[in-house]
Every structure is written in structure tokens, then in C-alpha cells.
Write a protein that binds this DNA or RNA. Structure first.
Length: 281
DNA sequence: AACCAGGCGCATA
DNA sequence: TATGCGCATGGT
């Protein structure tokens, strides 16, 4: 992978492992939008970025400092995904899943945003999750360039009531959002400290929050806390595992790569051939 | 017009 | 440990 710096943009080229469409549509984040011209714009970590793909390279519309200080890490560009896919291709199925998902990267998202959005995601569909998250940012976040809004932090939400959140139309999840905001804002839950904890400790701390079970906790760990061994299992994963792996399958065989295995399996089962059989059943 | 969504928490066996 | 249910809302 090559990175070239210009005054107003950074160009990343020479990799099969950056596909904006797959990265933003694989269900890990909810705030990147595609423009008619094919470019993508999103708000993350308090900043707005636009990027576009052109002839096998990715163009980040930002300066060198911002790229190195923010986006290089956010897009996990220091990781060798080609080597990762090779390690994960331990079976014919995994080889297909990794090939199909080539281009996926697991974003290093803000931990609070991950917690909040995956609380919202429970028993919900992507379209509605996106809408609720958008309203949350639009109503309680700060305005940014291009009509985008920042993700409101826990200190912004901790003083609100369930009625204040009614315009989100988040249903019963509203109370979960508020109590999570209060736990984090008060310091009762130190999200950043969970980065360096072992997985069991992090999961226990997260599931202590109302409305946070194993699935949401594992998503927060994987997408927001850098716990790459986390392996979220939802309805899609349950079906994919049931049909393609033994009944006693243990994701820990993938060790610290388990989270990436999960993403490739999930993406393949939803959008690839691995998922078609379920439609016909 | 139903069905169900990247679940959770609680009750019951 | 396993299974079932209600929870708010609205996309498909």
C-alpha cells in the first residue's frame, strides 16, 4: 500500500483491501453517505471527511496532518488485511468469505458512538438505525461543515429525559441511551479503560449497563475498543455458523483475528452466495 | 398488511 | 441451560 501526500489530499493506492462501499455498508457504522458522484462523506471523531475511489486508489480530501493524526488510524490503515485474509482462509468457506469481503476494514470508531449506535441497533433494521442516529446527531450534536453534525457525547445526553429523546423515535431504547450516557459521563463506566482490559472484564463492564447484552457489548468491543478478538453473534451469524460450521464451533480458534473473521462471515452471509440459501428456505 | 429487525431482560422449566 | 415473551417503531 502506497500513501502519497499532496497539499489538499492524500492518495492511498496499491491495495485490494480498501473498498469504501464494503467498509461503510457492512453494518459497522451508520453515518457515511454516498453522493451521486460516487464520493463518500462522513462525520467521525468530531471531523468531516470526504473521500472517493478512482482507478484503484482512494483519495482522502484532507491534509497530511489530519490524515496521519486521525484517518490513518480510523481506517486501520496500519493493518495488513491481505495477510489477515490469508490467515483466515482455513477452510473452503472461509476462503470464499474472505475473497468476497476483500476490501472490508474494521474502523476504529469512537467508543461512545459505538456504544450508543449499537444500543440503538438492537432488534432494529439498518434503515431505521441510520435514521435514529441521524436524528440524534442533528438534534443534539454540533453543526459541522457540509450540513453534517457531530455525534453528541455522553455529557450532552446525560442530563436529558426520555421525553427529550422522543423525537428520535428510538422506542424503548431511549432509556438505555440515557442511562449509558449517565454511566459514562459520571465516570462510573470508563470506556477508554476497557481498551486495555481483557475481553471478559470489558464485556462484564459493558453488559452491566441496561440494554447492553453480549451482542451489543461485543460490537462495542470490536468496533469501538480495539478488541479484535470480539465475535458478535446476531441472527445472521447464527444462521451462517449453523449452516457452515460445526455445532460446537468456537470463534476463539481465530484468536485475535476472530472479529475480522466475523466481519467476513457476516458480510458474505448477507450479501454473497453464502446468504442465498436462506432466502430460498 | 403482516412480519420482523445485527437484542435484552426476565420468567419459567 | 434452554425456550418464550414483551418491549416501541417502522421498513419492506
Amino acid at each position: 500500500m502506497e500513501i502519497k501526500f499532496f497539499d489538499d489530499r492524500v492518495i492511498v493506492s496499491g491495495t485490494d483491501d480498501f473498498s469504501a462501499g464494503k467498509i461503510f455498508d457492512c453494518g459497522q457504522c451508520f453515518r457515511w453517505v454516498r453522493s451521486p458522484d460516487g464520493s463518500w462523506t462522513g462525520s467521525a471523531l468530531g471531523r468531516v471527511l470526504r473521500l472517493r475511489e478512482e482507478e484503484g486508489s482512494v483519495i482522502f480530501e484532507c491534509g497530511k496532518e489530519e490524515f496521519l493524526g486521525v484517518w490513518h488510524d480510523y481506517f486501520d490503515l496500519g493493518r495488513d488485511y491481505a495477510a489477515l485474509r490469508k490467515r483466515l482462509s482455513v477452510s473452503e468457506y472461509m476462503e470464499r468469505a474472505c475473497g468476497f469481503g476483500a476490501g472490508i476494514r474494521i474502523l476504529r470508531q469512537d467508543a461512545w458512538e459505538a456504544l450508543c449506535t449499537f444500543i440503538i441497533s438492537q432488534c432494529n433494521n439498518i434503515a431505521r438505525i441510520t435514521g435514529i442516529v441521524d436524528r440524534l446527531c442533528r438534534i443534539f450534536g454540533d453543526e459541522q461543515e457540509g450540513g453534517f453534525c457531530s455525534f453528541p457525547g455522553p455529557e450532552r445526553l446525560c442530563g436529558l429525559s426520555e421525553r427529550d429523546l422522543e423525537p428520535l423515535r428510538a422506542g424503548y431504547r431511549a432509556s438505555y441511551i440515557i442511562s449509558a450516557a449517565r454511566s459514562v459521563a459520571s465516570g462510573a463506566l470508563e470506556l477508554e479503560a476497557l481498551r486495555s482490559c481483557d475481553a471478559e472484564t470489558a464485556e462484564a463492564a459493558l453488559t452491566a449497563l441496561p440494554g447492553v447484552g453480549r451482542k451489543v457489548a461485543s460490537c462495542v468491543m470490536l468496533f469501538g475498543l480495539g478488541h479484535t478478538e470480539a465475535f458478535p453473534v446476531d441472527t445472521w451469524m447464527r444462521r451462517a455458523l449453523r449452516d457452515n460450521f460445526g455445532p460446537g464451533f468456537d470463534p476463539s480458534v481465530f484468536g485475535p483475528d476472530a472479529g475480522f473473521a466475523q466481519q467476513y462471515i457476516f458480510y458474505y452471509s448477507r450479501w454473497g452466495r453464502g446468504g442465498e440459501r436462506y432466502v430460498c428456505d
